[in-house]
């Protein structure tokens, strides 16, 4: 018997880099906006912080990188909400971008697979 692997298409990956300690608020917003979940990992980087002068002491050089996978239809909404929650329009607050994902796979309940595939 061959195993069936349900592969998701139309997936986009939002990556958002914020200061250490601020990812939780952004993740919460992303989930409220419809994302299923998020991965956060720690990182360190340079950028706008170097141009801030004394204020750079107030910007944490250690970062949290949030990655969220969303569907094409959710993308813009989640992206905007995360931008606003992360206050990225302020200098030194972070950076975010989206890449298209060729395919993704995870657990999908069988009854949902049936429902989605029987239509076609």
């Amino acid at each position: 018997m061959t195993r069936q692997i349900p592969v998701l298409t139309d997936v986009h990956l939002i990556t958002c880099i914020v200061q250490r300690g601020r990812a939780d608020a952004v993740v919460r917003t992303a989930v409220e906006a419809g994302a299923e979940g998020a991965t956060v990992h720690y990182a360190r980087g340079t950028g706008m912080r170097q141009n801030l002068g004394v204020l750079s002491a107030a910007v944490n050089a250690e970062k949290e990188v949030i990655t969220v996978a969303v569907s094409r239809e959710q993308l813009n909404h989640v992206f905007e909400r995360m931008f606003i929650a992360g206050q990225l329009d302020t200098p030194g607050m972070g950076f975010m971008y989206v890449v298209a994902v060729e395919k993704a796979a995870t657990h999908i309940p069988p009854e949902i697979i049936d429902k989605l595939t029987s239509h076609d």
Binding site: N51, L55, A58, V59, T90, P91, G92
Partner: peptide, 14 residues
């Protein structure tokens, strides 16, 4: 590197 101009809202947020 360019100097950044910060408004009062940005200062508050930082």
């Amino acid at each position: 590197p360019s100097r950044v101009r910060l408004g009062p809202r940005d200062l508050w947020r930082i």
